[in-house]
């Protein structure tokens, strides 16, 4: 288990929050960092849409080869991914598309990914259908491993209901992740949540497994999470 692999690949069931976690992780790692958005199955809410915010933080962003971040859903994967993977001084975060079908986009780069220096992190949200219980989650992990051609090395507990998230939701996810750990031996590397929720966990002396990863919801517009 390590958060220290030079390359971190985030995978998972779709809609669990891979893009937000990828953005948060890229902002947590020591520079220089490149975020590679390899999502070719999702038309909206992709991490490349946060390019301006990330570049202001000094993080390089690789989207598609057309240089268009919004409004195209073409699998136009750029060659600039290869030198980023090769750069020994650079931390790389790869945001895969959801499910095995979305994860498949990385397969062509598999020979260029050094196994010993790479973490494949599975993002868990206990409130998504594909993570509804341990068995379903483990099955999803195994399918994605097949698709990527790498073994998973850890979990990110990103269990949430967006603006309605409380510490209870984080802890539900923690229980699920512990069951997945029992079944697979995969440790929780990060526990991701919005900063107030992470603070509330700390104040309540709750200790969900994993290092705190503050997710700020860069891809959400403020009207989306207004209480109705």
């Amino acid at each position: 288990m390590t958060s220290g692999g030079r390359i971190a690949i985030l995978c998972g069931h779709y809609g669990t929050g891979k893009s937000e976690c990828s953005i948060a992780l890229a902002r947590t790692l020591p520079a220089p960092v490149t975020l590679i958005d390899l999502d070719v199955v999702n038309p909206y809410f992709r991490s490349r849409e946060a390019r301006a915010v990330l570049e202001a933080d000094g993080i390089a962003v690789i989207g598609n080869s057309l240089g268009i971040d919004t409004g195209v859903d073409l699998p136009a994967i750029p060659g600039s991914i290869v030198p980023a993977l090769r750069d020994q001084q650079r931390r790389v975060v790869i945001d895969l598309g959801g499910d095995p079908v979305g994860a498949r986009a990385i397969r062509q780069f598999r020979p260029r990914i050094p196994t010993e220096d790479t973490d494949l992190l599975y993002v868990v949200n206990a409130f998504r259908q594909g993570n509804r219980d341990s068995d379903t989650t483990v099955a999803s992990i195994r399918e994605i491993e097949q698709s990527v051609g790498l073994k998973c090395t850890g979990l990110i507990n990103n269990s949430h209901l967006l603006g309605e998230t409380t510490v209870d939701h984080v802890m539900s996810g923690d229980r699920l992740c512990r069951e997945v750990f029992d079944a697979t031996g995969l440790p929780v590397v990060w526990v991701a949540a919005r900063p107030p929720v992470l603070d509330a966990c700390r104040d309540a002396a709750l200790q969900p497994a994993g290092m705190p990863l503050p997710v700020t919801g860069v891809l959400r517009q403020d009207w989306m999470d207004s209480r109705r």
Binding site: Y14, G15, N125, F127, Q129, E164
Partner: peptide, 10 residues
């Protein structure tokens, strides 16, 4: 219990 869903799948 509430679940998190994408509009289309919901």
């Amino acid at each position: 219990e509430k679940v998190l869903m994408k509009g289309n799948e919901a």
